[in-house]
Design a protein around this nucleic acid. Structure first.
Length: 477
DNA sequence: TGAAATGTTGGGGCG
DNA sequence: ACGCCCCAACATTTC
C-alpha cells in the first residue's frame, strides 16, 4: 500500500515515526509542501529559508527523492494521492496554533475524501497535553514542569527504516532551486556556510562533537560565549533533523558510561526541558507569540524609538557585548544563548522597545527561529511570560561582558574595531583613558559608537515603567 | 538563567 | 591594652 509521507518539521529518516509507519506498509511518496497561501502561519524568515533549502536538499539526497510542492496542502495532498495511487497520508505533529488548526481541518477533509490519515509525535519528549499538574491543567512554572517530565518514560528512538520509494510520475513537483530560498544579491548568508551543515548527518555529527568536546564543564562553561561549550543543535532540532528522543538517548548513554558526566548531562537535558516547556506554553496559550502572557504588561509605557531599534539590529549600540551578539547573529544566523539574554534585556529594558520587535528580528535572522522557543524566551526576558525573569532583573551589559567574556575574545571577534583595546576596558570603551583609545585606534563616536543610552539612567527608567505594570497588576487582581 | 543598595563582620592602623 | 575608625569582604535586602 502506497503512503504519502508529508514532511514538515521532521526532516530526517531515523526516529521518524511517520516515515517508519509508511515504510513498513509499502512504497513511500515523500513530499514537502511550501505553503505561502497564508493559512495564518508565519512566512519563514530569511535565515530559516537558507537553512530549509539545504535541509531539503540533504533529505532529498538521503531518501533518493522528495516531491516538492508549493501551495495549499488541502488541495495538493489529495491531488498527489490521486497521481500516485496512495490511499493513506501520514505526518508528524506540528504545534504552532495555525498548524494545529490546519492539520485538524486537513484530517477531516482528507478522511472524507477517502484517505486514511495517521499522525505521530516526532518533535517532543512528551506531547504538551500529556504533562499536567495535579488538577489536570498546564504547568506555568518550569521546575515542576520539568520534574513531571523527568518522571515520564521517554520512547526510545527508532532506527532508520528500510524505505522504498514509490514510482513517481515524471516531472512531478518543483525543483528546489526554483523556490529561491537562498539569498542572491546580496548573498548575506556567506558567513553561514562555514558555521553549519544542515541535514540529518550534520545534526548527528554536531551532537557527537558536543558529547566529545563540549559537554565536559557544560554546567558552568555554557555561559561563556567565547567557548565551544554549547551544542548548537537548535536549528537541527527546529527542522527535525534530529529528535529530542535521539538527543535524550545519546545523553543517557553518555551519562551511564561516565558518572562524572551526570551534572553536565542533566544541565544540558534541562535545556531540552526549556524547549519542551516553550512548546507546552504555546500549546496551552496560543496567543503567546503576539500577546503578553501576563496582561498587566499591556500597561507598560514603551517608547518604541525606530532609530534605536535599527541601531540595536545593526550592532551599533555602543555596548560591546550587545553589538558583538547582534553582529554574530547577522553574520552567522546564530547567537550564543547568554548573549541572547543580554541583547534581549537591552532592547526591552534599556531601549524600552516592545519584545515583539525583538522577536520579529530574531524570527527573520536566526537559523533556529522557532515560534515556541522564540516567543516564550522573549516573554521570559521581558518579564511578561510564564515563570519569567522578574521585571526588575536588568542585565548590566558591562558586568555581563566582564563576567562571561573576561578576556574579551568574543567581543574582539565580532567587534573588530575594538580588537586592540586592553581587556580591562574592552567591555566599556568609554571608560578607557584617552591615550589607551588612541593607541587602540578607537575614536568613540567615529570608529565605534558612544553608548546610545546611559546604563544607570536607562535602568532607572525601566524600573519606573514597571511600577506602572505593578499597579496594573494590582488593579487586575 | 541579576544588579545595586544596604547591612554586617572582622582585621589592621592608629591615637 | 583598648577603643575607635576605616574599609574590604561577604551577606542580605531591595529594586
Amino acid at each position: 500500500m502506497t503512503t504519502l509521507v508529508w514532511f514538515r518539521q521532521d526532516l530526517r529518516i531515523a526516529d521518524n515515526p511517520a516515515l517508519a509507519h509508511a515504510a513498513a506498509r509499502g512504497p513511500v511518496v515523500p513530499v514537502y509542501i511550501l505553503d505561502d497561501s497564508g493559512d495564518g502561519g508565519r512566512p519563514f524568515g530569511g535565515a530559516s529559508r537558507w537553512w530549509l533549502h539545504h535541509s531539503l536538499s540533504a533529505l532529498s539526497n538521503s531518501l533518493g527523492g522528495l516531491v516538492l510542492l508549493k501551495g495549499d496542502p488541502a488541495r495538493l495532498l489529495p491531488d498527489l494521492a490521486g497521481h500516485t495511487g496512495a490511499r493513506s497520508v501520514v505526518w508528524n505533529h506540528c504545534y504552532e496554533p495555525s498548524a494545529i488548526a490546519r492539520d485538524t481541518r486537513l484530517k477531516a477533509g482528507l478522511s472524507s475524501a477517502g484517505l486514511t490519515v495517521t499522525s505521530f509525535n516526532a518533535s517532543l519528549l512528551n506531547e504538551p497535553w500529556t504533562v499536567t499538574t495535579q488538577d489536570g491543567g498546564p504547568f506555568k512554572v518550569f521546575t515542576p514542569f520539568w520534574r513531571a517530565c523527568r518522571r515520564l518514560p521517554v520512547e526510545p528512538p527508532s532506527p532508520a527504516p528500510a524505505t522504498r520509494l514509490a514510482r513517481l510520475p515524471k516531472g512531478l513537483g518543483a525543483r528546489l532551486a526554483d523556490w529561491h530560498l537562498l539569498p542572491t544579491k546580496p548573498n548575506w548568508a556567506k558567513g553561514f556556510e562555514p558555521e553549519w551543515r544542515p541535514g540529518e548527518s550534520g545534526a548527528r555529527d554536531r551532537l557527537d562533537a558536543f558529547l566529545q568536546g563540549g559537554l565536559g564543564g557544560y554546567a558552568e562553561l555554557r555561559d561563556r560565549p567565547d567557548r565551544k561549550n554549547v551544542s548548537r543543535l537548535s536549528p537541527h532540532l527546529h527542522f527535525g533533523e534530529i529528535s529530542p528522543r535521539q538527543v535524550f538517548a545519546a545523553l543517557s548513554l553518555h551519562m551511564a558510561a561516565d558518572s562524572r558526566a551526570t551534572r553536565d548531562g542533566e544541565k544540558f537535558l534541562s535545556e531540552l526541558g526549556w524547549r519542551e516547556f516553550s512548546y507546552h506554553l504555546l500549546y496551552h496559550f496560543p496567543t503567546l507569540p503576539e500577546r503578553n502572557w501576563r496582561p498587566a504588561f499591556d500597561a507598560y509605557p514603551w517608547s518604541g524609538d525606530r532609530h534605536h531599534l535599527a541601531t540595536w539590529q545593526r550592532g551599533l549600540t555602543g555596548y560591546p557585548i550587545v553589538d558583538a551578539g547582534m553582529r554574530e547573529l547577522w553574520a552567522t544566523g546564530y547567537m550564543h544563548n547568554r548573549v541572547r539574554m543580554v541583547v534581549a534585556s537591552f532592547l526591552v529594558k534599556h531601549l524600552l522597545i516592545p519584545w515583539q520587535e525583538g522577536e520579529a528580528w530574531f524570527w527573520d535572522t536566526l537559523v533556529d527561529a522557532d515560534l515556541a522557543n522564540n516567543a516564550a524566551s522573549w516573554q521570559w526576558v521581558a518579564g511578561s511570560g510564564a515563570d519569567a525573569a522578574p521585571y526588575f532583573r536588568i542585565f548590566n551589559p558591562v558586568t555581563q561582558g566582564t563576567k562571561f567574556d573576561a578576556e574579551g575574545r568574543y567581543v574582539r571577534r565580532w567587534v573588530g574595531e575594538l580588537s586592540r583595546l586592553p581587556d580591562a576596558v574592552i567591555h566599556a570603551p568609554w571608560e578607557a583613558p584617552a591615550a589607551q583609545l588612541e593607541a587602540a585606534g578607537v575614536r568613540l563616536g567615529e570608529t565605534y559608537p558612544a553608548p546610545i543610552v546611559d546604563h544607570k539612567a536607562a535602568r532607572e527608567r525601566a524600573l519606573g515603567g514597571y511600577e506602572v505594570v505593578k499597579s496594573a497588576g494590582n488593579a487586575l487582581r
